[in-house]
Design a protein around this nucleic acid. Structure first.
Lengths: 160, 160
DNA sequence: ATACGACTTAAACTAGGGTTTAAGTCAACC
DNA sequence: GGTTGACTTAAACCCTAGTTTAAGTCGTAT
């Protein structure tokens, strides 16, 4: 039913300093205290901790997480506001995921670049003849090769 | 053929301070200088800048990006090492994308939670009767509802 | 030849997100 | 009744990734 800061820290995979820091920053206004002033977490508090964890991992600054948590404690008046905030945050996160996917695509192009170079024994296969500069058509060559196969791994993975 | 630091900054969507900072941190050892000591970027340098941008967006610390760039300048000896680095970085990024997807899933559960609460006019519909605490079965209710539909939007999006 | 904008440097400053430290309280065990 | 271990606080510290500032140089247009 009740949990000490140490138990909570262990359960959510963090440490007591971090939880106290969050509390100081206004992220844990829902946590009660015992007679000696120690934090006393309830089962329901883990719902808040889950939200904090999610927003944190989504890149929301501590300050903004605090604002959301405080909306939660203000009752049904703020339900719509909380929904709208999460809706907006969903859009932001979706954009981040798309961006990461884009970086992943680029990384895979570079893996292809180095796989083929390793196989050839030299990076020169990608240079404009007579120079030591990468040929501008290199990326397009990769795109074509990618179109032509249904097995990306074969294109970019080097055997160990 | 040659570009000033200002032109490069504009083209890649950053500013001169940041580029000088990168140079100071060893990310731009390939950039040449004119007689007056000004940075003189070549077309080929944009390939490096693309890699820097990708690794930066992937969360690689500046220091490690510098190490990779310096491998690039050491010639064909380091081809395999560069491949292996990117391969490892691909794994890391894939994990990050999966994690972000997980946060997105959670965010959508919370959107459902608030959509239904807004529609009911009160968050109490999610509480264990007689308490002001969220019922532990709430998340499972969402999962069931999600299984039962092929239109997530209908479940989590509130009309404006 | 002088004014102007774009460039140079080193160093200080900022913000975010904690971590560590110092000093102290409390309750339980031996 | 003294040691131990878990807890408390405020404040100092650390790292990353820049941004800003101050002081100065260069080259071209007027």
């Amino acid at each position: 039913m009740n949990y000490s800061i140490g138990e909570v820290a262990q359960r959510i995979g963090t440490n007591t300093s971090t939880l106290r820091y969050y509390d100081k920053k206004g992220l844990l206004p829902f946590v009660e205290r015992d007679a000696a002033g120690r934090r006393k977490f309830k089962d329901n508090d883990f719902n808040f901790l889950e939200v904090i964890n999610c927003l944190k991992k989504s890149g929301v600054p501590i300050k903004d997480i605090g604002k959301f948590i405080n909306l939660c404690l203000q009752g049904d008046e703020t339900l719509r506001e909380r929904y709208d905030y999460l809706d907006q945050e969903e859009t932001v996160l979706e954009a981040k995921v798309r961006d990461m996917q884009g970086q992943l695509d680029f990384l895979r192009f570079k893996k292809w670049y180095y796989k083929t170079a390793v196989e050839a024994g030299t990076e020169a296969i990608h240079f404009t003849p007579g120079t030591k500069f990468v040929d501008p058509s290199t990326h397009d060559q990769y795109r074509s090769a990618l179109q032509a196969t249904n097995d990306r791994s074969q294109l970019i993975d080097l055997q160990k």
